[in-house]
Simulated scan of single mutants.
Amino acid sequence: MAFWFNVATGQVENDDTRGMDSDVMGPYDTEEEASRALQTAAEKTKAWDEADRRWEEGED
């Protein structure tokens, strides 16, 4: 079963309770992973921004 994080409600959902596509992030393998969806997204965005900065400055 997949888990989803609903950004509208702030709740973890499963396939049976999942909200609209535009409201959910996922799928995630575990409820715990889904509960950290916003943190994971922020960490990935920060890493991608840093990679872009290095590329634009010719460091990579």
Score class of each variant (00 low, 15 high):
E13L: 01
A51E: 15
V24N: 02
R53L: 09
T30E: 01
N14P: 07
A37G: 06
A47V: 06
D49N: 15
R18Q: 11
G19V: 04
A42Q: 15
K46W: 09
L38E: 10
G26L: 01
D29L: 10
T17V: 02
L38Q: 07
K46V: 11
E33Y: 06
D52K: 13
Y28F: 15
A41G: 03
K44F: 09
R36H: 15
M20F: 08
N6E: 03
G58M: 06
V24W: 00
D29V: 06
K46N: 11
Y28Q: 01
G58I: 04
R18D: 07
T9W: 07
E31M: 10
S22Q: 13
V7Y: 06
E57H: 14
E31Q: 14
R36D: 12
T17C: 02
D52N: 14
G19Y: 05
S35D: 04
D49G: 08
N14V: 01
K44C: 08
F3H: 07
G19A: 08
V7P: 00
W48M: 14
N14F: 02
R18V: 12
D52S: 10
S22D: 12
D49A: 15
A37F: 05
D21Q: 09
R53F: 10
T30G: 02
T30F: 01
Q39L: 12
K46F: 10
M20D: 13
G19E: 05
A37W: 03
F5G: 00
D16Y: 06
A2E: 07
A47N: 09
A34S: 06
T40P: 00
E31Y: 12
W48P: 00
W55M: 14
V24M: 01
E13A: 04
K46G: 08
L38R: 06
P27I: 03
Q39H: 10
G26N: 03
W48Y: 13
W4R: 02
E32I: 09
Q11S: 09
D21H: 07
Q39G: 09
E13W: 02
T40L: 13
D16A: 15
S22W: 09
